[in-house]
Design a protein around this nucleic acid. Structure first.
Lengths: 109, 109
DNA sequence: CATCTTTATCGTAATATTGCAATATTAAAT
DNA sequence: ATTTAATATTGCAATATTACGATAAAGATG
């Protein structure tokens, strides 16, 4: 075992889990925050912002990209990264939906 | 290696990563959704709702509980589970903050 | 008290993640 | 064409996660 049984869950559940998982590492949270700390896309310079080696950062960027949370455009020999608004809104809607349901629930615990 | 370098990141980054990571599995999304599908706490019956063996579900519940996303109260020989509103609001605020920043950013990708 | 029900824990196998050194790739600059 | 700069990929070791059978623990029920 060790592999997630994705086939037993709905597409929505798998999709949201994928997005949450991609954010489930402090380095990737830090990357997102850094991308948003400037009012434009970041071309290069991400590695120097993080306390991790370049291959490690590259890997984290890849995971964020695979999940659709960020996108990268080649700009010369650098790559411009930015947060994907559509995906972020999707995640936001889901969390909001859960949070609203939670607050409207009858407390009993 | 293989261990996350949590000490190099801020408390906030680590906290949000922990919450996101806890939601980063479809079974745990399904558990949260099931807990919210009824307007009260769920005492037992979670195992039968999921396509996973009882020890596996128990483990997922434990992780959600460790992250503070759900809480469980002993009720006889069963345990009543429900979503933790405070933690969920914290996650919601963070995601909202990120989403707002994303949508206010100058697009360039 | 014996038994049933519910949930947790242990042990373990399969797989995934994290991290980085070494190396490759790609495009700009000289 | 060579060098430089930025990013990706490969390979690998350490660790974490996922899943479940077996078993334990704790309260309810007969």
């Amino acid at each position: 075992m060790g592999a997630t049984k994705t086939t037993h869950f709905t597409d929505s559940q798998n999709e949201m889990a994928t997005l949450a998982k991609a954010l489930g590492h402090p380095a990737r949270i830090a990357i997102i925050e850094y991308l948003l700390s400037v009012n434009t896309c970041i071309c290069g310079d991400i590695v120097n912002e993080l306390p991790l080696a370049q291959p490690t950062v590259s890997q984290h960027l890849k995971e964020l990209k695979n999940a659709g949370l960020i996108q990268g455009n080649i700009e010369g020999n650098a790559i411009c990264y930015c947060v994907n608004e559509t995906t972020m809104q999707k995640l936001k809607s889901f969390i909001n939906h859960i949070a609203v349901k939670t607050s409207k629930r009858n407390n009993c615990c």
